[in-house]
Simulated scan of single mutants.
Amino acid sequence: MKRNLISNTLAGLTLALAAAGAWAAPAIDVIGKDFTFPNKIEGMPAKLSDFKDLQINSFTTSDGVKLSYWEAGKGKPLVFIPGWSANGAEYVNVMYLLSKHYHVYVLDPRNQGMSEHSERGARVARFGADLKEFGDHLGLKKADYCGWSMGAAVLWSYIDLFGTKGINKVAFIDEPPSIYSHADWSEKERQDAGGMTSSPERMVEAFTTGKPVSSFIVQSQAFQRFTLRDSPYFANSEAFAEAAVKNDMNAIKRVLFDHAMNDWRDVIRTKVNVPTAIFTGVYSDSLQGQRWIHSVIPNSELHVYSAAEQGDHFLAFKNPIKFTTELRSFLER
């Protein structure tokens, strides 16, 4: 009886601290339970509790929104920014591998993951400001950054607003320079920009409701590739994310139209002036767009994953051994 009382008191204290935004605790305590990964993979954690130094922490932005972030490891700071609707739980394998060499952070964007749901700031520009405030919160003078999908757009926004003074090296994973394909573009311009929709409204509807849409409106195989749990690593991280985080579609959809309408080509072409790595694959919706990014950023390097290497939008999570090895090689050069 006494043991149950103590356990309940500790659980209540953890929730109270989380609600106050003043907590820094092991991930297993914040989530409230352990998790057993469905696939046993040699060299990887079998349970969440095997990843002993994984923490979930938080800070409050200048406009009063509480953002959560995942962290593990020691050493040079390496910051990941997830894509639309994604969160730190999906990075569990990537973090486990890289935390042996870096102090790794994954920021849950507002309205995503364990961050606060707010009607304020549902714009990529605000997400870029959030990233700057996150670095300020951590006291980072300089760090390496990696943005996946919309997370790359958040990095482009950050660079547009604040420059690259605080960035050592940067990596982008499979984000089109412009999702919206303008009606007056040539086919080459569309492919170089990675344009994949002629109607952002229909794209938002398709992405948030699952309503079928023709390839004339949205040219994307991302959802099909997502449903292929053809990697035990990916099956593990997605199972964990689904157990740990409950998405609110009304919250996460708020930024999607703004995200679709931004054209980042001028920023990519003129403001990305630090060592850059671009990761994509043969199943990318914007492979030519990734090649264009590589062509306009001096001395950048391009990694194109094959079909056998899980070369789709989720390559970092489907093939985390190859991805983390190549990312680390880039960062250490």
Rank of each mutant, 00 (worst) to 15 (best):
G12L: 14
L13R: 08
A16M: 14
A27Y: 05
F37A: 04
P38W: 08
P38C: 10
G43K: 05
K47R: 15
S49H: 03
F51S: 07
K52S: 06
L54Y: 02
I56C: 07
N57R: 13
S58D: 01
T60C: 03
S62F: 02
V65K: 09
L67S: 07
W70R: 01
E71A: 00
K74Y: 05
P77I: 07
L78S: 10
V79W: 12
W84D: 06
S85T: 15
A89Y: 10
Y91L: 12
M95I: 15
L98N: 04
Y105M: 01
M114R: 14
E116F: 01
H117S: 04
S118V: 01
G121N: 00
F127E: 07
G135S: 14
L140H: 11
L140C: 03
L140Y: 12
K142I: 09
A143T: 09
C146H: 05
G147S: 05
S149N: 11
G151V: 11
A152N: 10
W156Q: 13
T164M: 08
K165A: 14
K165R: 09
G166N: 12
G166Q: 12
I167C: 02
K169H: 13
K169N: 10
V170M: 09
D174Q: 14
E175S: 13
E175P: 03
S178R: 15
S181V: 03
H182F: 15
D184I: 11
E187H: 13
K188I: 13
E189G: 06
E189I: 07
G195Q: 11
S199T: 04
R202S: 06
K211R: 06
K211Y: 01
S214Q: 03
S215H: 01
F216Q: 11
V218G: 00
V218A: 00
Q219N: 06
F223S: 12
Q224I: 07
F226I: 08
R229F: 14
D230G: 06
E238P: 00
A243E: 12
A244T: 11
A244E: 07
D248W: 02
I252D: 02
H259A: 02
H259Y: 12
A260W: 01
M261T: 15
R269P: 09
N273I: 15
S284F: 14
V296P: 14
N299L: 04
N299K: 14
E309A: 14
G311L: 08
F314R: 01
L327E: 04
